[in-house]
Design a protein around this nucleic acid. Structure first.
Lengths: 207, 207
DNA sequence: TTTAATTCGTGAAGCATTTAACGAATGACA
DNA sequence: TGTCATTCGTTAAATGCTTCACGAATTAAA
């Protein structure tokens, strides 16, 4: 999926990180923060932070830093889209853990439903998430207006599920299966491949 | 953590992906594969694949492609380090799912032990992984020669656990907590931040 | 009021990665 | 055997990202 980009690709996840930190600082009653302070917290260089922020608009004050509330609003407006409904495919160990993950039950991200082959799980409720049979995908996706699917099925079924998701009209897939999936260009994928993350980290350690 | 790099940073995860695909093709009895074919499977451009592979040595044959076994051996020798022992911190939902994840019980990656605060879990065995109290970290890490720790505790305890891991001599941390952790320079971190992955995907969809 | 110190914002320079362009090698086939 | 199509490998160009360098704005304090 090619995106017509407004901002450099890599500033987006950083901006999302900044938002989270700013939120935290706000909750602790802080009003202003400098790029240097953010750098200490996030591990991102201060210049990088200033450059990132400058993509979104001038909001800092020399000698004072950024007003936290204003900066947070600016970043959210630029990068944090409105609430998104998500559907989960696969209710094995990983699926269950995802279903219980508190960050996926917020106002911004909400798991609206789950799908599973195993008939023993169908009809159950896990953490408020109803489990449906795969025949219901189209209707449930339509009803919930879900945009994103999480692929948490065993890797043998990865491509099959991806095809189902595409057919149901989902626009993005988070793929936890350690297998590349092929999908049409108008659907975005993000692969989260834990084995590869592991081995990459190992390469960093053991040069 | 600064690495003295042998290969471009981004070719490493791709090489790990190629290894997996090659393995799969081998199992299906294939002997040769071209960069074009790998491109179709992985979604990486064929030129990129040839360039990546050329980092490791000349191994392809014009008009034929790569001998799968030879290529796999070459990549593994370059990028796939020997087996690594891992320890898991936190046996909540996420920790349990990780403990049960089959890819973490292979010859290459093995979860050697887990640590948990909740006394009700201590002493239990989950999928062959023994759960210890936090006091045992140093001795267990030493005994198992673990190099990497997985941080799967609630985010409030993230920094505390990271400190424990560093003190125990671990050299790398996979951090699932949605919180930046600060650690000394000689320890490598990889953050896996599902919320940020989600919102980033959403930005890709909704440009 | 002036000076000094701090911090933002930005154009330019520096790196890293990807893509393009193309020669060279190889095997298939007439 | 010679020709042709295919595929690798590599140098060069293009792109994208990060870091540097520095001016401008602002506050604190002399």
């Amino acid at each position: 999926m090619q995106r017509s980009r407004k901002y450099p690709q890599r500033t987006i996840p950083r901006a999302l990180l900044y938002i989270r930190i700013l939120d935290d600082l706000l909750k602790r009653g802080k009003q202003f923060v400098s790029s240097g302070e953010l750098a200490r917290i996030t591990g991102v260089r201060d210049v990088q932070i200033r450059k990132d922020i400058s993509n979104f608009g001038p909001v800092g004050k020399p000698r004072v830093g950024y007003q936290i509330r204003a900066l947070k609003n600016l970043l959210e407006a630029s990068v944090q889209k409105k609430a998104v409904q998500v559907v989960l495919f696969g209710m094995g160990n990983l699926g269950k853990a995802i279903a219980r993950y508190p960050e996926f039950h917020t106002e911004k991200i909400k798991i609206a439903a789950a799908f599973e082959k195993d008939p023993r799980l169908i009809g159950k409720d896990l953490n408020g998430i109803r489990v449906y049979s795969l025949e219901k995908v189209n209707s449930v996706v339509k009803r919930t207006r879900a945009l994103i699917g999480i692929n948490a099925v065993p890797k043998e079924a990865a491509q099959e599920m991806a095809d189902v998701m595409v057919a149901a009209g989902l626009r993005g897939i988070i793929n936890f299966c350690p297998t590349p999936i092929t999908i049409p260009d108008h659907v975005a994928v993000k692969n989260i491949d834990l084995t590869i993350e592991f081995m990459t980290l190992l390469c960093d350690i053991n040069p």
